[in-house]
Design a protein around this nucleic acid. Structure first.
Lengths: 232, 232
DNA sequence: CGTCGGATTGAGAACGTTCAAGGGGCGTGG
DNA sequence: CCACGCCCCTTGAACGTTCTCAATCCGACG
């Protein structure tokens, strides 16, 4: 996995068109502020609510976003964490099926979906990139089914750490901008269980951490074994 | 939910182009056999394997297909059941991330993805329909996160029944072409648990069944309550 | 220095799984 | 036509993983 990380997988070539930078992770491209407009967000701020009519697509400049849904009784599911360079806002045809909230202070750039659509309609390479992007998102989402449907708590947390490590590309040092509750709601667990698993990994020498938002992977092989890494 | 069912949601207008019939459920359109070519499948037959290079997109004419992934130790996840009129095969950019197998005897029509792409590239309404289709698929997939991540066994089974009832459009009579094992692997449960929940619903007068592959919804309101139906 | 939200740890309970046995439908072969 | 075997479904009992509830700890911030 996972989702946005797949969009950057080997198949997508460098995109010469600014709007489609939306669909890449933006490494080395630089954003096109002329095209969208930036939004500064405080911790916990809502970008859009579940059920709101769709309008814009967003790209994260800095910080982390979560897209989530709440059940009436308060249960929550975090569909995805969106890191800097990744895009979100494509969670419904007419209306958003999830809400989007800032996990940390964040800056995102919003692009009217209509504008993105027109762009994709009139530029063939854009259309192709968009197709691959969406297919990658979809199969990434379905891969999350494996985690939620069939993995144990330890496997989920290990998979999550490896996923973040890949997407964060800061080597073995993994940044966890989100709370244990956020992680739990993304992995279908409770915060207590997540915390216990982290402690277990630490005791086992698989990871180390100075504070609870910064984890160093000490034994990647063992972490991958814990994750039951199914070949992607 | 779920997935393909969303593609037919109110927003997609009737599509005048034959290739895009791929993306609709085909109600009232009729298939275009000149465009793709049909494939007759026996129960259990594999259409493509996980990891195989992508080639075609498929539309189900009759029968039911499942797309699934296996972990090394045999655990299995059924990402989706594809009913007659629905499409599958978009589970990877270069290579399939899931395998596709026939749940029942089935007939599917295969379309080269390249051909579909070209079509979408050159017809604006096609491009728009395709976009909506993929966004609907994606948000449908993410909705499954709610089920797998936060719902109880009874809620999962109830949600599944309601989903099938909507997609099968045969009123309160729900056809279950797949085994309890298939259902379990789609809902992140075991076949025994699924069976127990069905029995519970039957005892409670919520459903009735002559045989185990045919269920009648007797009390839809109560079934929806059991499902904790979050507003889609 | 005190307060507060998040993180950790523990103990007990609950839900779903595992293991095991029995039942039913269907196809094959005698 | 019946018998057998196979696969799937159902049901029960015991077990285990994860959740729930509760207490404590820690770091950030006023």
């Amino acid at each position: 996995m996972h989702i946005a990380s797949l969009a950057r997988g080997g198949s997508a070539p460098a995109l010469p068109f600014p709007a489609l930078d939306m669909l890449s992770t933006g490494e080395g491209h630089g954003l096109q502020p002329a095209f969208g407009h930036p939004l500064r967000l405080e911790r916990g701020a809502e970008i859009y609510a579940e059920g709101a009519p769709v309008g814009d697509v967003y790209k994260v400049v800095s910080g982390t976003i979560r897209t989530c849904r709440y059940l009436q009784d308060g249960r929550r599911v975090v569909a995805e964490f969106v890191l800097a360079g990744e895009a979100f806002g494509l969670d419904g045809v007419d209306h958003h099926h999830f809400s989007a909230e800032a996990v940390t202070e964040a800056v995102v750039i919003s692009f009217p979906r209509r504008q993105l659509n027109e762009w994709v309609d009139h530029e063939l390479p854009a259309a192709r990139a968009w197709r691959n992007f969406m297919i990658a998102k979809l199969s990434g989402a379905q891969s999350h089914f494996v985690l939620l449907g069939r993995k144990t708590a330890a496997e989920r947390v290990a998979s999550f750490l490896l996923d973040l490590a890949e997407r964060g590309n800061s080597g073995a040092l993994v940044d966890l901008p989100m709370s244990r509750y956020d992680i739990a709601d993304h992995l279908g667990l409770t915060a207590e269980t997540v915390s216990r698993i982290f402690s277990g990994f630490k005791r086992g020498g698989i990871i180390a951490n100075r504070d609870c938002r910064k984890v160093r992977i000490l034994d990647r092989a063992r972490l991958e074994a814990e994750a039951s890494r199914d070949i992607l």
